[in-house]
């Protein structure tokens, strides 16, 4: 069976994505009742370009991670269903949205952002 993957953008312009891998769960506060709309998850900062270290601040936790190149790059696909013919009915098409070559891995224990300063 043939799966057709279609890339509409050019070879160079194909947008590059990155995975943020966290060891843990990001939860909403109970007061928001699960509505994630327009909520700021946190801040991802790339600190001083020399090392590939990133800080990610979620809530009152600060995570420190690094960029890791994946062994096998991943594609981000978008599944499209077209109704082309009458006979075959639906036709599934996968469209490349982006390519993932790296991930930012936060594997250390988060640092709580607390201090007694007033």
């Amino acid at each position: 069976m043939e799966i057709r993957v279609k890339c509409e953008c050019g070879e160079e312009e194909c947008s590059e994505w990155t995975i943020v891998e966290l060891q843990g769960v990001v939860e909403t506060q109970s007061s928001f009742q699960g509505s994630l709309q327009n909520l700021e998850i946190g801040r991802l900062c790339h600190t001083n370009s020399s090392q590939e270290t990133y800080t990610f601040t979620v809530g009152y936790h600060e995570l420190i991670g690094s960029k890791v190149i994946l062994k096998k790059p991943l594609l981000v696909l978008k599944k499209l269903q077209k109704c082309t013919d009458d006979l075959s009915g639906k036709e599934t098409e996968l469209q490349v949205v982006g390519i993932i070559r790296t991930k930012i891995l936060f594997k250390t224990r988060p640092k709580p952002l607390m201090s007694g300063t007033t």
Partner: peptide, 8 residues
Amino acid sequence: RPLLFKFN
């Protein structure tokens, strides 16, 4: 601080 991180 809508979102909190829970470390597993």
